[in-house]
């Protein structure tokens, strides 16, 4: 199973990578903005994408729309600091399958991934 990590913070990208190391996901790329993320999705069609919302160049929700257009099967897990309900619901509307609020602890991430990948 392939994974793309999208977050404008490189520390955050590495944090996610570290937390998910037990999942044996094949991390096929990381992106620091929405535009790069869409390009990688188009080229490599990852199974799972973690997606930040507040990002330069192209924000996460717009990016999500584009991802769903080019690769609707992708399971997108939103990981954002924007803790209002509406943003979460909008993300679900646009096709996200999982949702996490920052700050994200390792437990938060694994629990959410268990649900996303139907692992228990």
């Amino acid at each position: 199973m392939t994974l793309l990590i999208v977050d404008d913070s490189s520390v955050m990208r590495r944090t996610i990578e570290k937390h998910l190391s037990d999942y044996h996901l094949d991390i096929i790329g990381t992106a620091g903005n929405g535009r790069d993320a869409v390009q990688i999705v188009k080229d490599k069609r990852p199974d799972v994408v973690t997606l930040d919302i507040t990002m330069p160049e192209m924000d996460g929700l717009t990016c999500l729309e584009n991802i769903m257009e080019v690769h609707p099967q992708a399971k997108v897990m939103i990981i954002t600091a924007l803790s209002d309900k509406l943003t979460g619901l909008q993300a679900l509307d646009k096709g996200a399958r999982g949702f996490l609020y920052k700050p994200v602890s390792p437990e938060d991430l694994t629990k959410a991934f268990d649900k996303l990948l139907n692992r228990n």
Binding site: K85, L86, G88, L89, Q90, L92, D93, R97, G98, F99, Y101, A112, K115, L116
Partner: peptide
């Protein structure tokens, strides 16, 4: 007004089997 649209979206996803119930319940406006 802020909660009105959120509620509509939320209720719609209540019937969406793709979304895990516990994930969704975090977004209950």
């Amino acid at each position: 007004p802020r909660d009105q649209d959120a509620l509509e979206m939320f209720v719609k996803h209540l019937f969406n089997t793709d979304i895990d119930e516990s994930v969704l319940s975090q977004l209950n406006p």
